[in-house]
Nucleic acid binder design. Sequence first.
DNA 1: ACTTGACTTAGACAAAGTCCAGTGTACGTT
DNA 2: AACGTACACTGGACTTTGTCTAAGTCAAGT
Lengths: 138, 138
Amino acid sequence: MSDLLERLRGRGWRMTAQRRVVAEVLAGDHVHLTADEVHARAVAKLPEISRATVYNTLGELVTLGEVLEVSTDKRAKRYDPNAHRPHHHLVCAQCGSIRDVHPTGNPMADLPDSERFGFTVSDVEVTYRGICPNCAKA
Amino acid sequence: MSDLLERLRGRGWRMTAQRRVVAEVLAGDHVHLTADEVHARAVAKLPEISRATVYNTLGELVTLGEVLEVSTDKRAKRYDPNAHRPHHHLVCAQCGSIRDVHPTGNPMADLPDSERFGFTVSDVEVTYRGICPNCAKA
DNA sequence: ACTTGACTTAGACAAAGTCCAGTGTACGTT
DNA sequence: AACGTACACTGGACTTTGTCTAAGTCAAGT
């Protein structure tokens, strides 16, 4: 995880307390947090950090490809620190919880040229939906 | 398209002018509209229709499975009236335009039991991202 | 230690969506 | 055909998520 900080410094990032804290929060555990949750946890470590900074920093991390933006269809975008291993998501339709999954097969190859309409396709995102064990028993 | 109204009446829907208008707008052309766009077009046909009603009606149509909610990662959810033919989406990362596509293969079968974590998986959604021809030449 | 420009802050703003109290109306019953 | 009632609609306030800006602060090179 401090390799993340290394990489960022290598890319010319100015290393500030705020950015360190955001990076720590993301590296902390492998949950998919919303921006506000990241902010809440960041505030716990650095009380005066502002919401705008958290949004900016997350945006920069996404741009740099260090973090993935996941928008299931819940309200808020979620941020996935596990950007370096390709994977897809399994979402609980009820509580919104997310798990990373690794399906077999290559969906990219499943889209024939005739179905690309001249687009330059660069990415696929597969989202499985269902009910998690926890919600199922309730 | 009036089969839609039939089906809805069959399900005990009370048929109001507002609901008829929303259904017409969706059936009108096969674009993926946002809730606000639906509202705008509905207002053109029935000036006093309120935003809340449009949201409610769209929500009901989604619940009934007559319309799909598509959340690419743009800001607003979009509504896809083409709910009865399974299909996936191709989104332009730049302008946000959406096309329906029909990939080969069955992504549902690509998720092994060991990757389901006890979820009851009921649905898959595949989103391809890229640049549309229009944005590419700009 | 100084300087500078990148970074941060707080708060106003914007967009998308939800909620509620009061009013209106579709439809089964008479 | 008229009635009554439960369901639906309205408009506006409110919430949530995210963006923007002007002014202040600070990391890092010299």
